[in-house]
Design a protein around this nucleic acid. Sequence first.
DNA 1: GGATGTGAATGTCTTCACAGCT
DNA 2: AGCTGTGAAGACATTCACATCC
Lengths: 220, 220
Amino acid sequence: MRLARLDCETFHNTMSKVSESTVRRLSLYLRFLEEFEAHGTQTVSSETLARLGGTTSAQVRKDLSFFGSFGKRGLGYSVSELAERLRDILGLQRSYGVVVVGAGKMGSAMVLHGGFARRGFFVKAAYDVDEHAVGRQLNGVEVRHADQLERDLERESIDIGVIATPPEAAQRIAEQLVQGGIKAILNFAPVRLAVPEGVLVKDVNLSLELEALSYGIRNR
Amino acid sequence: MRLARLDCETFHNTMSKVSESTVRRLSLYLRFLEEFEAHGTQTVSSETLARLGGTTSAQVRKDLSFFGSFGKRGLGYSVSELAERLRDILGLQRSYGVVVVGAGKMGSAMVLHGGFARRGFFVKAAYDVDEHAVGRQLNGVEVRHADQLERDLERESIDIGVIATPPEAAQRIAEQLVQGGIKAILNFAPVRLAVPEGVLVKDVNLSLELEALSYGIRNR
DNA sequence: GGATGTGAATGTCTTCACAGCT
DNA sequence: AGCTGTGAAGACATTCACATCC
């Protein structure tokens, strides 16, 4: 199937059902492509991406095929072109405004983590209720009182909210974020958030990861 | 199928193939069970666990059925008994020694996070190469120089290593951890670690999570 | 009656294998 | 010759539906 340059949208509309694992792998491939770009490598094969990503070449090709055909048979993929395409597919051509609610260990780590801005995710502010936290600067990002969250969201357009509060507070914050027009939430609090359809929630639960390791250790 | 009280091992040996998603859900169910335990609730149905965990009652029953039959038809599951069984299945009856390598934002967050000890994961030490970090105490956990890692691992028995170093350092640390007899690694560094078969690696990559949200936002 | 436990059916993801370009 | 793109096959996971037992 042949595709004109920029009509990925066509695909998104028609075949919106791409698995989460595919999306995660695409992100991974993009990482590797960017390393190749930095190295000046021109061309890459599905086999190479597969080896780096710990998967198979068929998987790589299938993952890409959901969105079009970006390679040249007998040759492989143009590194820069495929990177461009993946950035487009993943929605990384634009940048995203992020707020972090909860400036404890995890929240601060998210704010201070250097890698996000490089990939277009800009943390605009952090919020907390603790007097010691409020008013501090985290690497140029102001920690404000959580009371200001709703008002701030009306002023500045924010796309993604990170919830790193204690579990009791998480649902209320989620509601404020939704109210403020946020489209996606990265949730570190160990609770299932109730949100309206259309709002994305991604849970990160590190205790769960440790327990998966515990299971794995016990069962060889 | 009827099971004697404590022969979960039988199952682990015979049917070692349980999906990662099942294991994660079991961890989740255990969370809810512990809340019910604290509340004094005696009995719980697959339907209730399903609603809390965002899945279906059939899924809950299937997940459990891989390991035995723990419920009473017509009644549901005994909260305390099922919790006990899940702790057994997940290997949470024992405790685990953990070391955190890399005392930056993520590493410190892992050390300082209160929830892990409660679930049997005890951080015994943290390691870094930075002079400012080495020697500090993080909530009672000493930050040592990474040079000491190998020696320390010989002395104290450690089960799980957390890698929160820059990507360049990760592979070498992984090798030291493996050399030191560690059985599982939680890896925050954005690189694929090469480890001998039998060593478990769980990658956590928060940029990837954000990119999955970005994809989701772009595609409704 | 009411909820479990589980084969069978369905659905989803991965791997195979090869036709089709370059 | 080499590597992609993709239907078809196979593996895996979820859901259905009902016999079974408390």
